[in-house]
Design a protein around this nucleic acid. Structure first.
Lengths: 151, 151
DNA sequence: GCAATATAGATCGCGCACGATTCAATCGCT
DNA sequence: AGCGATTGAATCGTGCGCGATCTATATTGC
């Protein structure tokens, strides 16, 4: 195996034994898969997630989107500017509260949803997960994330 | 729930239903946790993973490290230069094959291991996972990653 | 023995993430 | 009404990831 002395502390520092590395490397692999699938939509993976949020509910402020994605404005502002430059969304200051910026889909942004519908199925095939297996893993991860967020 | 029409394709595009988003957001949360734990070691999370690889076996080439971490030279070269600047490793061209660069720990790099031993336990506490639960999730993720890499 | 090819690593450019800071708008309190 | 505190977004700096390209060295084929 990875060590010869059987010391627990040593094993704990072994790369392959760590949950965090499994998470890290699987996320990289998933990201790579999405890169290929999203190329024809001309979206990056975080941009795709942002579009998912807006397809579920149009017209949200930057911080509302951030609450869904667990991202803050330092990440979202430049990303949203790129989506705006691509003609998928509009950004405009709210009249009620000038501190807020409202993000809304354009017609082009709404119509992209049709083309995006093929993506989840393609991912499911690539991961070769049954829906049940995927749901179980998803729920375990959401649980872990909540415990980590609580720290 | 997330939609009102019960259409499967619509549900498939719902953010929270997606395994990929669970993976993405949990990895971000894990990264954030490590940021705090690794601050006193003055390591980023990918730098810590690289040190784990070298603590397991000293003297590896850039591409050998990359095979363990699933990263290529575009990512590793600058990261290794930063570890070199921090005095934790040395980088030198192999004499047998001048194309290769051998990475070796310095004394400082080796001694950092002692201080790093506390990290896995702290992560386990934060995640509130039993070892069994963590191992199960880890193995499920490794399995998924292998299927994704096969694509 | 030498040109064609393959390999290892470095470099470049772009797009996240995010801590820290800044700035304007709004809120809360007296 | 006035003013300090809070909030929402933008900005800045650093460090990944990685596709694409480049360079130097090594290997192969003839």
């Amino acid at each position: 195996m990875t060590t010869h002395n059987g010391n627990d502390t040593d094993n704990a520092l072994a790369l392959e034994s760590q949950l965090c590395f499994a998470l890290y490397s699987t996320q990289l692999a998933m990201n790579k898969l999405y890169r290929g699938l999203l190329r024809e939509l001309e979206l990056t993976y975080p941009q795709y997630l942002t579009m998912l949020v807006l397809w579920q509910r149009d017209r949200q402020t930057v911080s509302e989107i951030g609450e869904h994605l667990y991202l803050d404005s330092a990440t979202l502002t430049p990303l949203l500017k790129r989506l705006e430059a691509a003609g998928l969304i509009t950004r405009q200051r709210s009249r009620q509260d000038e501190r807020q910026v409202e993000i809304a889909l354009t017609e082009k942004g709404r119509s992209l949803r049709e083309r995006a519908k093929a993506v989840p199925h393609a991912v499911g095939c690539a991961g070769q997960c049954s829906p049940e297996e995927a749901a179980e893993l998803r729920d375990a991860l959401h649980g872990l994330r909540q415990r980590l967020d609580g720290q």
